[in-house]
Amino acid sequence: MTMIVKKTTQLIAGLIFLYGIYVIIHGHLTPGGGFAGGVIIAGSFILLILAFGSDFLRLTREEAGSTLYENLAILIVVFLAVSGLLATGKIFFLNWIPKGTPGELVSAGILPLYNIFVGIEVAASVLTIFLALVIFKEELAE
């Protein structure tokens, strides 16, 4: 890629990443949430890979890493869902943490936790899909 693309990407990739985090953390207050924010974060990584390129070996290593993050995040989501079952008797997906005042950042009980881990999961899985397709293409070229 040209110098212009690289410089612009360097400038905005961090901002996009931060914006994704903002969308995830405010998921229970504003439109958006885990899925939208996760896709934005994955977008920042994809932008970096597209602009700077990457060799085959590093791509496969990154894919292994993102798969691991994805699996861990979804395990934690399932664990959060089961925690309702364990904490207060018999109810799955129960919002058992105190809810706080509506409108505050730290409120709505367990929902922000779901949002954060769903965000990690979506970011990792979208990145994995992108990397897998790129790796297919690289294998093809050889």
């Binding site: 699996n71 395990l75 399932v78 089961v82």
Partner: peptide, 12 residues
């Protein structure tokens, strides 16, 4: 929940 978490424990 059991097979769902089992799938990802398998992967990790």
């Amino acid at each position: 929940a059991i097979p769902l978490s089992g799938a990802f424990i398998d992967m990790i």
